[in-house]
């Protein structure tokens, strides 16, 4: 949270001016979409008669009632304590999204028959490709960061060319270049190693900058103290500088891992059986695209939520270490 002031202001959603403006805007917005032919119109039947024939009267009064319910909900949430607000708002948004998915008239029997395979094959492949790639990318990033900070022109040139090139090309293109380009040099590469290589090189380039910033944020006094004690460069880096940069490196690296988890869907184009590939191919045969795509979407999301949780735990671990 931001640094809070000692004076408590009135909650925005309890200010009359805000509520009036909201009510008017909501009525206008809801009137634009004719809500009488939805479930809300049915609820209004005792008041407006047959929804289909209620005209502008029905349309406006339905919009008014829906806007009122909406505002009442917001005002009530405004009274709740912080944690309760989070839970309630999360649940409401989740319900909205799920009902959006539900409105596609999905065949759950079909999903049930495929989901186990999607998890064992797809999630497993996605996770292990991402995990290997992020590990290799981190190592590459340490090397890149040290090279970019070194006074050796040769190392700096290679590192800066590398980051410039691999940050400058779309990842999808890198996947193609490696998978289709390497065989031109006489080395035929399998799909999975090609995908891992592309993800590693691309994310290594981004993470080089993260590691460089992390290393540079350590005060020079730490270097001086290490030198004065007789530590050599590698020892200083490994035992003094990097451990202290970790709290700064971990959060953006976690971000990168989450991004990579989803970017790994790009390697589906070269036929790796990860989650995205399965989502596209499993549905094709039965023309059940939506089922598989939505299932894959929810699986990606669930994985991300788990990773966010892990990330916050690690962050807290490093925070307690440095205090």
């Amino acid at each position: 949270m931001l640094f809070a002031d000692t004076v408590k202001n009135k909650v925005l959603v309890h200010k009359p001016k805000f509520l009036i403006i909201m009510l008017i805007s909501l009525i206008i917005i809801f009137s634009l979409f004719n809500l009488t032919d939805t479930i809300f119109g049915e609820f209004m039947r005792p008041v407006i008669g047959d929804p289909a024939e209620s005209g502008w009267y029905g349309r406006l009064s339905t919009a008014f009632v829906v806007a009122l319910i909406f505002l009442l909900n917001i005002v009530l949430i405004g009274f709740m304590p912080f944690r309760a607000q989070i839970i309630v708002v999360w649940l409401q948004l989740l319900t909205l999204f799920l009902s959006f998915f539900y409105s596609f008239d999905l065949n759950f029997e079909f999903i049930r028959s495929k989901i186990w395979f999607m998890i064992t094959q797809g999630v497993f492949t996605t996770l292990y490709i991402s995990a290997i790639s992020i590990t290799l990318a981190s190592m590459l990033a340490i090397l890149g960061a040290v090279a970019k900070l070194s006074s050796n022109g040769f190392a700096y040139a290679i590192a800066s060319f590398y980051t410039s090139f691999f940050r400058g090309l779309p990842l999808l293109m890198q996947v193609y270049l490696i998978y289709l380009g390497l065989p031109q040099l006489g080395y035929v590469i399998e799909a999975v190693p090609a995908g891992i290589l592309a993800l590693t090189l691309c994310y290594g380039a981004y993470m080089t900058e993260i590691f460089r910033a992390g290393i540079q944020s350590i005060p020079k006094g730490q270097w001086e103290a290490s030198r004065a004690l007789g530590f050599k460069f590698g020892l200083t880096m490994r035992r003094i500088i990097l451990p202290q940069s970790m709290p700064l490196i971990i959060p953006p690296t976690g971000n990168q891992f989450i991004a990579m988890l989803k970017d790994s869907s790009l390697v589906s184009v070269i036929g790796v059986w990860e989650l995205m590939f399965l989502a596209r191919t499993l549905g094709t045969k039965d023309f059940r695209h939506m089922e598989m795509l939505i299932t894959a979407a929810l699986i990606y999301w669930t994985l991300t939520v788990c990773l966010e949780f892990v990330q916050s735990r690690i962050e807290r671990h490093y925070q307690t270490l440095s205090h």
């Binding site: 103290a225 007789g230 530590f231 270490l321 440095s322």
Partner: peptide, 20 residues
Amino acid sequence: IDKVRMDVGMVFQNFNLFPH
């Protein structure tokens, strides 16, 4: 140079202890 430095102790204005 570390051969020299390990025989020369140094105390800094800002301590420069290793905080981790």
